[in-house]
Amino acid sequence: MSMSAAIAPAKVEDLPAAPRDWLPILLVPILILLALPLVGSFPTWATLTIAGLAMGLIIFLVASGLTLVFGLMDVMNFGHGIFVALGAFVGVTTISMLGGWTASSSFALNLAAIGCAGLAAAVVAGTVGIAFERVMVRPVYGLHLKQILVTMGGMIVAEQVILALWGPEARPMMRPASLQGSFIFGDVAIEKFRLLAVCLGLAIFAAMFLLLNRTKLGLLIRAGVQDREMVEALGYRVRFLFIGVFAAGSALAGLGGTMFGLYQELVTTAIGAQMMVLIFIVIIIGGLGSVGGCFVGALLVGLASNYIGFVAPKVNLFSSILLMVLILLWRPQGLFPVAKR
């Protein structure tokens, strides 16, 4: 009797829930609260916090694709920054073509202009991403050293092509009329565009979270990150998944480029390399291959660089590195280590 009871399969409800690791997520509110006495005045702090969140979410857009690509196929794409630069330049061109829409004071038309620019950037960057995967990455699977060299070389070449197409001058990137200026709540001034960036970033994060956690495709991607060979043994072609993720990651990087261009209101070819540094710090902090970790890491880096940029501008970039060092001392594999890697 007791034997058969032991053999009976456990019901789903009987299984213990997977333990959630809340500690890293708590770091974000802790950092925000710690910064308040450091910054001193509440209105400045609120402005900096929104700016940090906006920047963090833009970084997340760009970094999420890179970390998934690494998780799935063990490919570290050092040329990822080129999609950012490409997206920014396509965005500039699109927005300047839609001059009528951006100049009008109608919020809907302005939003449509940004939407078109983002879409164009995503489509172009995604297409180039597929080509980049085919030409640059595919011949060097499994060879880390060559991957780094080839993708870096690809970045050099692509950067020169962008320079040839758009010219070497920095392009100013105007925000549409109704997104210029700030909302004023009492003493607190919040730039309208930053608020939009926060909303957009959160929406995309939510969509990605649902896709990864609630669909079969997402299940396969997550499983592939955990153990590629097992998923292949079950009959799924992780290679196709990978191409899809690579294209989607490049498209998101392109969108992130447009947003970052609007955030800085200036676009240069250096935008890609500039962002690459932050992206690497973010995905190392998050744990290579982890999207959740990438999200937390991006917010931390965005916030820290805005706070420190205000308190001690000279050591701004070192603040992100210091943050990374501290987190790696605490968890050497990043905030959310991915199994096996």
């Binding site: 570290m76 050092f78 880390h144 780094i148 690459m276 540094v277 690497f280 710090i281 995905i283 190392i284 290579l288 970039l317 992100s320 590195i321 990374m324």
Partner: peptide, 9 residues
């Protein structure tokens, strides 16, 4: 691979 990324930063 950390080395490449960290040296860049």
């Amino acid at each position: 691979i950390f080395f490449a990324m960290i040296t860049l930063a």
